[in-house]
Every structure is written in structure tokens, then in C-alpha cells.
């Protein structure tokens, strides 16, 4: 017990507290100025915008993948089920490298996009693609078990009572999936805003255009501008905490839902 607390403090709490201590060295005015500089605001826009789009794409496609895996039998199903976890297991630097190779104008997928005038690498689109990749397992793996536990009887009852498939889907299945879907979305979003490794390869890192906040923190650190880095980190930390609270809240809501059902 005592050991648990000491180790937790040494590895996690004290280091994170350092961040707060460092912030306290700045006056609120300075902190505000550093956290809201033009370059910082641009990086927030890129980070949160791309993360939001990526999480939304994952919510839609992740649910479709989970649905196909649970409800349908098709050749390659076991393979799809197995490799959904790859983005989670793959080191982020490798993910970034691989995606850059594939989506570059000469890459396997990029060469089909180039004639359409779509440039993926070194654009916000590339950042979004990387964030879709790393967020993919979160929605699939939170929706999948809930879908497996859905009892067929409820759907059958709806059908027997005269509901069409569409009505059953929107009135029975979607409400049952909503908490898990929101949790998966929040997890993917939370992971995306902090992501660094997979993005830096594909983003091109142009100031005001494709510079994500974690990269800007990195740049500030390399310039020994610890105050600037700290201010940005504090903003990110606050958002992360808010996401963590939201995810825990969603989890509690989902459990209550399951308990009532």
C-alpha cells in the first residue's frame, strides 16, 4: 500500500507536479500570452480540428467494422479482427513512416489520389489520416463487446411486434450502443490530441499550417524555451484531464445503462 503510493508519486505525480510548479513561476499575464500566441492558437486549431475529424471518421467506420465483425461471417473476418489492434501495437514512429510511404504522391494509395488533386502528405489531411489510423482500435474495441452482448431476443421482439429493420435499428440498437460509441469516440479523440510520433512524419511541420501542439512543445523545448513549452503543456494537460473525466463519466453512464437493461 505504502509502496504503491510512493512509486506512483515518484514516477507520475511528482513529475507532473513539476509542470504545475513551473507554471507558477510565470505571472498569469505571461502564461496567457504564451498560451495564446498566434502560433499556439494555430497549433490548437490544427490539433483539435484534425483530432475531431479523425475521431468522427473512426466513430462511423469503427462502428461499421465492429458490426461486420460481430454480425456477419465473411472470408477474412478473423484477419480483420486480428489486425484491428495493429495501430495500438505498432510504435508510433513506424506508423508515421508507413503512412507517409503509402500516402506520398508516389505511394501505393497516394498515386491514386494525386490525379484527383488530393495531396495527403504534408497537409492537414495527412495529419487527419495518421490520427484516424491510431484511433481506429478504440471505437471498434469499445463497441464490439456491447454489440456481442446485445440480446437477439429484444430485436426479435421488436420484429414480431411489427417493427421494420430500420425502426429496430434506430430505436433498439442505436440507443443501446450510444454510451459505448461515445466512449470510443472520446478515447480516440483523447489519444489523437496528444499524438506525436505518427503525425510528425506525415505532417511536414509547417508553422501555422501543419504544426500540431505537441510538436510546438517539442520545438520550444529544443530552444530551451521552457516557459513557452510549459504554458502549452498546461493547456494540453487541462484538456486531457477534461477528456479523462468525460471518459470515466461515460463509462459510469454505460454501466448504469447496462444495469437497468
Amino acid at each position: 500500500m505504502g509502496y504503491t503510493l510512493v512509486y506512483l508519486s515518484l514516477i507520475v505525480l511528482i513529475p507532473l507536479a513539476t509542470l504545475v510548479v513551473k507554471t507558477a513561476e510565470l505571472s498569469p499575464g505571461e502564461l496567457w500570452a504564451l498560451a495564446t500566441s498566434r502560433r499556439a492558437i494555430a497549433s490548437y486549431q490544427v490539433t483539435f480540428g484534425a483530432s475531431l475529424v479523425a475521431a468522427l471518421v473512426n466513430a462511423a467506420f469503427g462502428t461499421a467494422i465492429a458490426w461486420a465483425l460481430v454480425r456477419y461471417r465473411f472470408p477474412g473476418r478473423a484477419l480483420v479482427d486480428a489486425i484491428v489492434d495493429v495501430p495500438f501495437a505498432l510504435p508510433t514512429a513506424v506508423s508515421g513512416l508507413a503512412l507517409t510511404a503509402v500516402f506520398a504522391p508516389t505511394g501505393w494509395i497516394g498515386r491514386w489520389l494525386a490525379p484527383l488533386g488530393i495531396q495527403a502528405v504534408f497537409t492537414p489531411l495527412g495529419i487527419t489520416l495518421a490520427l484516424i489510423f491510431i484511433g481506429l482500435p478504440f471505437v471498434v474495441r469499445t463497441v464490439q463487446p456491447v454489440l456481442e452482448d446485445l440480446e437477439a431476443e429484444v430485436e426479435e421482439a421488436a420484429a414480431v411486434l411489427g417493427a421494420t429493420r430500420w425502426q429496430t435499428l434506430t430505436r433498439i440498437i442505436v440507443p443501446a450502443l450510444t454510451p459505448a460509441l461515445l466512449t470510443g469516440f472520446a478515447l480516440a479523440f483523447a489519444r489523437a490530441i496528444g499524438e506525436y510520433g505518427s503525425v510528425v512524419f506525415i505532417s511536414g511541420n509547417k508553422q501555422f499550417e501543419t504544426e500540431i501542439t505537441p510538436l510546438l512543445i517539442m520545438t520550444r523545448l529544443e530552444q530551451f524555451d521552457y516557459a513557452g513549452a510549459t504554458a502549452l503543456a498546461l493547456v494540453m494537460l487541462i484538456v486531457s484531464f477534461a477528456m479523462l473525466l468525460a471518459i470515466n463519466g461515460l463509462g459510469a453512464w454505460a454501466r448504469r445503462r447496462a444495469g437497468h437493461a
Partner: peptide, 18 residues
């Protein structure tokens, strides 16, 4: 669960600050 919610860059940065 806290380290999972923190950006890896911030995770490294706190040790630089320390």
C-alpha cells in the same frame, strides 16, 4: 490511468523540467 491520458511529449517534458 493518468499516464495514458497525457501526451507522450508532455510525459518526456516533465522529466526535462525536473
Amino acid at each position: 490511468d493518468l499516464p495514458l491520458a497525457v501526451s507522450p511529449v508532455i510525459a518526456g517534458m516533465v522529466f526535462v523540467l525536473l
